[in-house]
């Protein structure tokens, strides 16, 4: 009898606690932290696309420099760090496995291969709309007090870093003369294949080879023979 009385006494707080716990669990679940627990390997995204009008068996050779292009916002440079040499070697290996032949630097080839390390960085400023102005226009402003930057200014920086592998059609390129407009679309080199490798850990030497292998594995149309 006595125990049932106690349990009755505690029933209501217990129910409230269970409810609060349930709500707590529920509210901590949200879109913003949905991918916080992704492993680096699971975070990797391989995006491939190609020109549907192209028959890739018409190409037999490819030209691939030993360095990669570093694209930093609108600036371009070349780099040949160990990890970059590794990705170039792996791309060459995959293309060779598909039946294409790499030509020496400077020799003409059917395909131009560009490996780019994209390193874009964007900086912006935002204001916190919920920060109160408080005494922003309070007494004393303009009477010899120095201005200060309110704390509700927030700076954000977005870094977008990924690998890009492109195949360019050199075989069917337009023969340029001094009078051709190099910027006209029909006179530009045509990108017929592109792969973007994104995610965490993509600049680690341990993960490079698998990324490239997987990207080519989902691009079955890349082969020198039908």
């Amino acid at each position: 009898m006595k125990t049932s009385k106690i349990s009755g006494q505690f029933r209501r707080p217990l129910a409230a606690a269970v409810l609060a716990l349930g709500l707590g669990v529920g509210l901590s679940a949200c879109t913003d932290n949905a991918v916080n627990n992704l492993t680096p390997a699971d975070s990797n995204v391989l995006i491939t696309n190609y020109d549907r009008q192209i028959d890739f068996s018409q190409y037999k050779t490819f030209s691939l420099p030993d360095s990669v292009i570093v694209e930093s916002n609108n600036g371009y440079s070349q780099s040949s760090q160990p990890v970059e040499q590794q990705i170039v070697a792996q791309v060459a290996q995959e293309l060779t496995n598909r039946g294409y032949t790499r030509v020496a630097a400077g020799k003409s080839a059917d395909l131009g291969v560009a490996v780019t390390r994209v390193n874009n960085r964007y900086t912006g400023v935002t204001t916190n709309p919920y920060a109160g102005y408080g005494n922003y226009w309070g007494y004393g402003y303009g009477y010899g007090y120095s201005a200060y930057y309110p704390s509700y200014y927030q700076y954000y920086q977005v870094t977008d870093r990924y690998w890009r592998v492109e195949l360019v059609d050199l075989k069917n390129r337009v023969i340029t003369t001094p009078t051709t407009d190099p910027n006209a679309p029909q006179n530009q080199l045509r990108v017929i294949y592109q792969a973007e490798l994104r995610g965490n850990g993509i600049f680690d030497t341990a993960s490079i080879n698998k990324l490239i292998t997987d990207a080519f594995a989902q691009s079955t149309y890349l082969k020198a023979t039908r």
């Binding site: 391989l46 995006i47 491939t48 696309n49 190609y50 549907r52």
Partner: peptide, 8 residues
Amino acid sequence: SGETISAV
């Protein structure tokens, strides 16, 4: 749009 995406 033509892209093939491999992702979790």
